[in-house]
């Protein structure tokens, strides 16, 4: 029986101004699995400025090398610059697979890398398996309603993986050596320039990384109520905050909170949907939650069809009671 050649995998790490995004570990887990299946090895590439802590956080997962491109020109993840450096590294290391965890960072940059390498790409992969002398991939389509089995031809395969589909890997002991990546700023493209980034509310975890996500929908009438009730309950539970598209569209919540087909995909242990009706586009973002609980005034709301626990009620009564009783406990 044929089996694939040993793979040379390159994982692209994601961080937030020097702090590792834990979702990166899903891509590391996937790379480890591929290497275990084929007898290959993997490297992790980290780009940015002052990223020592990111390299440190990734040192014990069994990467052959940690490739670190630490340079002021890479301070912001601009796609033209990042894609060029990543493509150069992929070529220099002879990578046969290039992957990252699906996010707006990787979805912005990796397709650009794929095209530079004349490689095909798959997004939102949930499984990779050797088949004959090649691999098959599972990926989600149609707002998460369809799972496609796909092959990817060519000498380099580029893909992003769903964070929820690969559990964080065990630490492997020995520290991976750090290899510095030369960055020549004069050879980098400069068609894109960073201007600013909105300040984020501090103190709450990101919904893609949190163990508990409390999410609010149309039932909330304004930003103050949303913050007091959804934010308040999230804080009591130590969770992250999310919202439906309806609230973002009406300006009550910022874009970065949106969960769903075109927003974030979350996979917490508990997803608590408050006053969310459950449009299929929203449900696409919470399919991998371990437990879904929902509170909605409308007993016919579609979210009840996917909720492990449903409570019919007005969020303006139920949520204050939840906050009060959970605080006491």
């Amino acid at each position: 029986m044929n089996s694939p050649n040993p793979q040379n995998v390159l994982v692209i790490a994601e961080h937030d101004e020097g702090q590792l995004k834990l979702t990166t570990l899903a891509a590391v887990a996937c790379a480890k699995q591929i290497c275990a299946d084929t007898g290959g090895s993997f490297d992790i590439l980290i780009l940015g400025e002052s990223i020592g802590p990111v390299a440190e956080a990734l040192q014990d997962y069994g990467a052959a090398d940690l490739l670190v491109g630490d340079h002021a020109a890479l301070k912001h993840p601009l796609a033209d610059k990042y894609a060029q450096v990543i493509a150069e590294q992929a070529k220099a290391r002879g990578a046969t697979m290039l992957l990252a965890t699906a996010s707006t960072f990787s979805k912005d940059i990796l397709p650009r890398v794929a095209a530079l390498l004349d490689a095909g790409m798959l997004g939102d992969v949930t499984a990779v398996a050797p088949e004959g002398d090649d691999f098959t991939f599972h990926r989600v389509m149609y707002a998460g309603n369809v799972i496609a089995t796909v092959t990817l031809a060519g000498p380099v395969k580029v893909f992003t993986v769903r964070a929820a589909a690969f559990s964080a890997p065990e630490k492997a002991g020995a520290g991976s050596p750090i290899v510095s990546v030369e960055v020549g700023p004069e050879s980098l493209p400069h068609q894109m320039e960073f201007v600013s980034r909105e300040e984020r509310p501090a103190g709450r975890p990101d919904s893609t990384e949190a163990r508990i996500v409390v999410s609010g929908g149309r039932a909330f009438k304004n930003a103050e109520d949303f913050e007091k009730l959804v934010g308040g309950l999230a804080d009591v539970l130590g969770g992250a905050v999310g919202s439906s598209r309806a609230l973002v569209d009406s300006g009550i919540t910022p874009n970065s909170l949106q969960i769903g087909q075109t927003g974030k995909v979350v996979a917490p242990e508990l997803y608590l949907g408050l006053g969310i009706s459950g449009a299929i586009q929203h449900l696409a973002g919470i399919k991998d939650a371990k437990i879904v609980a929902a509170v909605n005034q409308d007993p016919e709301a579609p979210i009840f069809e996917v909720a492990d626990y449903g409570l019919v009620g007005d969020v303006y009564q139920v949520v204050p009671e939840l906050i009060q009783k959970l605080k006491k406990a």
Binding site: T104, D108, E193, V195, R197, E198, E199, D206, N255, K264
Partner: peptide, 9 residues
């Protein structure tokens, strides 16, 4: 629109 919030370039 990025995961971390709004960015201007």
């Amino acid at each position: 629109e990025t995961d971390a919030g709004l960015e201007t370039i």
